[in-house]
Amino acid sequence: MAGTDQTRRGETPYEAGPAVILVAPQLGENIGTAARAMLNFGLTDLRLVRPRDGWPNERARAAASGADIVVDGARVFDTTAAAVADLDYVIATTARARDMVKPILTPEAAAAGLRDAVRKGGQAGLLFGPERTGLENDDLALADALMMVPVNPAFASLNLAQCVLLMSYEWHKAGDATEAARIDYQQTRPANKNELLGFFEHLETELDRFGFLKPPEKKPSMIRNLRNMFQRAALTEQEVRTLRGVVAALTRRVPKGEGPEGA
């Protein structure tokens, strides 16, 4: 997969996470793509309940696209109860409301619940049913809460791997300290106020010299507007130096008759 750092394959940077339990998965390819989705977000505990095409399954391995640690470690169970027996907190995924008195969570809230269970020293799990029918009520009865994805009600058609990917991502995001957005400054840094003020004064001096800041009564508001515009740009130190160079270049040589009075 593009973006995979092959040099880090041996580091196994996987934290303790929820088990992913697939109940009666229909195709080996479904299992493999679910395994691939899991490993993208560091989950490795895959449990299979009565896989229709048996296990091991070479089609699953091929579809996993290198997520061998998940496929090789997968465990098979005869019943859902056996698959969740060692878990302390289980969330079951469902595409429709069921006649059960259980908390119904969004993916984000479900991930927070899983994180809380693991943080308290427990073991957690995510329960997924077969694509065609979903989980049976007896399986749902084993769960502490249900999770429903808020999809388009006119086309609620997530496949198994998509659902596993969604919840693996939410799990990972709930514990990820990465900033939502950041700037890689590399060889520069954000401009400080002193540098910005130096640029503002340079620009304003030249604009005033060339008659831009008129009429006089509007000069203060024009200056504030210019400063606010450049403040929003979040300039770097290098960008401030570049802009000062631009101002200097534009005002260094002015064709006769086009400069300020007396030029």
Rank of each mutant, 00 (worst) to 15 (best):
V76R: 15
G73D: 03
A110V: 09
D68M: 08
A92M: 13
D116E: 15
L48A: 03
M100W: 05
M38L: 12
A83N: 04
Y14G: 05
V84I: 14
A16E: 14
T93Q: 08
E15G: 13
V76G: 03
V101P: 00
I91F: 02
A74G: 07
P56S: 09
A111I: 07
A83T: 06
D53R: 14
L22T: 08
R119Q: 10
I69F: 07
A110G: 15
I21S: 00
R75Y: 01
L105P: 03
A34N: 07
F41T: 05
K120H: 14
L27F: 13
A85I: 08
T93N: 09
R115L: 12
D88A: 10
A81N: 08
D78H: 12
P103T: 12
V118Y: 01
Y89E: 02
D72E: 14
A95P: 05
R61M: 12
R50S: 15
D88K: 06
N57F: 11
A112S: 13
A74Q: 02
L22H: 09
T33S: 14
G17L: 11
E58P: 10
V101Y: 04
G113K: 12
L22K: 10
L39C: 05
V118W: 00
T80D: 01
A111E: 02
G121T: 07
T106P: 07
P13A: 10
A63M: 15
D45Y: 06
V70N: 00
R59V: 03
A109M: 13
A81D: 14
P13T: 09
P103W: 08
R96I: 00
V84G: 02
T44Q: 10
A16F: 06
L48H: 03
V23P: 00
R36S: 05
I91R: 01
